[in-house]
């Protein structure tokens, strides 16, 4: 791995597809100011709305259909049975002087918001790993009810040790 200076992940929140806050955790004391859980709920709801509207702003790319037809004519549809149009993605990054907020929306509409240092590199990689842990330790847990707040010890533990590892690098 390369060494990045001041690599820090501040917080993670997960928003369900209805815009409700289902997970909220801060990792690095002093990185962000403390706000109440209520404010996090408002942030989640607001972001959900803004994300939905920005996704509607995003024009459906005709290029993707053109590309598909051209590839199918050239290679005979070598890309397989991929016919679903690419989903319009909404707001992905918000940046302030002190932190950067990266959003990742899953195909089912769950959103992961990662608050990181502005210099943090490879947020995509971190996000991917967090999503992986979510699918493992939350979705495969028989006691988790969909769309409800995430309360899984195992998820907390694995996420905590992974983020600690990143923050101490």
């Amino acid at each position: 791995m390369f060494v990045f200076p001041h690599v820090t992940v501040f917080a993670l929140i997960i928003i369900n597809k209805a815009g409700g806050l289902i997970y909220n955790r801060t990792f690095h004391e002093g990185g962000l100011n403390k706000i109440s859980t209520n404010d996090y709920l408002v942030l989640a709801g607001t972001f959900h709305g803004v994300h939905a509207i920005t996704a509607r702003l995003n024009p459906l790319r005709p290029a993707s259909t053109a590309k598909r037809s051209s590839t199918s004519s050239v290679t005979g549809g070598g890309s397989g049975p991929l016919t679903r149009p690419e989903l319009p993605s909404g707001l992905e990054v918000l940046e302030t002087e002190n932190f950067r907020m990266q959003c990742f929306a899953t195909l089912t509409g769950t959103k992961f918001l990662l608050f990181t240092d502005t210099t943090q590199a490879n947020v995509d990689l971190t996000m991917r790993r967090v999503y992986e842990m979510y699918t493992d330790y939350v979705m495969k847990n028989p006691f988790y009810q969909l769309e409800m707040p995430v309360r899984c010890d195992m998820f907390d533990r694995k996420l905590g040790s992974y983020i600690r590892e990143i923050n101490n690098r």
């Binding site: 493992d136 330790y137 495969k140 847990n141 028989p142 006691f143 309360r151 899984c152 010890d153 998820f155």
Partner: peptide
């Protein structure tokens, strides 16, 4: 992958 809830 199982986390048993506290009440159980």
């Amino acid at each position: 992958y199982i986390s048993v809830p506290r009440e159980m």
